[in-house]
Amino acid sequence: MKKQHIILASTAVATAIFLTACGSGPSRFNAQSNRGITTTDDINFKDWQITAEKTVNSMLKSGALRRPDGRKNIVMISTVKNSTSQHVNTQILTNKIRQAILRSGLALTTTAVSARGAEDKASKQVRQLEGDEMFNQDTVQKQGTAIAPDMSLAGEIVQEKTRQGRTKQSYFFFHLTLTDLKTGLAVWEDNVEIAKQSKKALIGW
């Protein structure tokens, strides 16, 4: 009887130690590494990285950003429509692309106009200083000096969800287009597909 009690108590203590030892405190890791949490239903940071990298490479290689007259195209970031069943911030993608375009030196991006109004409202606000006695009018930005965009970058993210038994699957389709605003023609288009699958545990807590 006593032996049984000792075994029972030891098992309980061992389990408690095991369970408390399972957790870990917060830590930093390299965002470019393959670490990080992957979930089936959501777009994780790695998915954004993969998509941005593939689309930027494709866009830059296509030559669609180059102009024959040597001037740099001005690209506005339009809307990346979220057609998934997750609340996502599509700016993670558009900001990455915007930075890559600027870094490439092939084109410039504008913050004065976007599908949802100006990304940086300052361009408009400073022009409202015209006639304001407080400011030296020679230094106030004049109307008619801002440069309108030549191209627009837009896209859509679509998600298809499927379940069968304990397995669930999400298929994300990222589609991006670059439109020549003069002609309305798409000068570049590409997509990235990401498929994820997970299986619910049969036995667990």
Binding site: R166, K200, A201, I203, G204, W205
Partner: peptide, 9 residues
Amino acid sequence: DERATINAR
């Protein structure tokens, strides 16, 4: 919904 098919809870 995400719990294991046979789970302790």
